[in-house]
Simulated assay, not measured.
Amino acid sequence: MGRHKQFDPDAALAAALDVFRRQGFEGASLTDLTNAMGIQRPSLYAAFGSKEELFQKALERYREQCPVFGASICAQTSARSVAERLLYGAADQQTDDANPPGCLITLGAVLCSDEHSSVRQLLADARQETQEALQSRFERARAEGELTIDADPASLARYLMAVVHGMAVMAASGASRAALRDVATFALRAWPTNAPSHVGMEAETSPA
């Protein structure tokens, strides 16, 4: 008997991530996934477990590649630069021609049924983790005097995340990078400090 064709799990996971980004969790059928990954269902189950486990692994890969939702976003030198990096980085990433438009964390399970509530929760947890990291960074900025004492770190974090998620919907609907960067610029007008800009419109394009 002939030997089974070997496959590269890393390349297969990258292919699965692309399918999930384009079609969401429920929209991506097992046939879509196995065709893109170049494997049969038994190999998918053996290497990655269930479809939900595959999605979780793809989400982990996405977050590794996605600086907007990574821990490094809060490593900027000021709270203002964190906000700029987040917004302009999201605009660039969500409109990168090399990848499907929008954001997996925002759109990946928008239409999931109750049957897959665990997938919705997985993405909600990812969003919440980023929001909490932003809030913690802004609390430090307020304690250090960069933000005024009456600035609300929790509200700032929620505001920025709401803008980022709205931009993802716009990108998925065909909005251009220029349009999303315009949204980012407008959103930053609400920033509660006159601290100088560190990223601004010249922000380096973020990889997806």
Rank of each mutant, 00 (worst) to 15 (best):
E84N: 11
A109L: 05
E115K: 09
Q121N: 07
R142K: 15
G145T: 03
E139N: 04
D125R: 11
D114M: 05
L111C: 06
G174Q: 15
R120P: 00
E115N: 04
E115Q: 09
R142I: 00
E129T: 14
P100T: 12
A171T: 14
L160K: 05
R177K: 11
Q93A: 15
V82L: 03
C103F: 10
A157L: 10
A109H: 04
H116N: 12
S113M: 01
T130S: 14
S113A: 07
D150P: 03
R137C: 02
F138A: 00
G108Q: 07
S81G: 04
S117G: 04
L104V: 09
S81E: 15
R85F: 05
A154N: 09
L111K: 07
L160A: 13
S113W: 04
P100V: 10
S176K: 05
S81Q: 14
T148Y: 00
Q131A: 14
Q76A: 15
T106S: 15
D114A: 07
S117P: 00
S117I: 06
M167N: 12
R137E: 00
A98E: 11
A109Y: 02
D97S: 12
A172T: 06
Y88E: 08
L87V: 13
S118Y: 02
I149W: 00
A178K: 09
G108E: 04
L107Y: 00
R127K: 14
R120C: 06
S81L: 06
R137T: 01
T148M: 06
A79D: 03
Q93N: 11
S136C: 06
L134K: 02
R120F: 00
Q121D: 12
T106M: 07
Q93K: 13
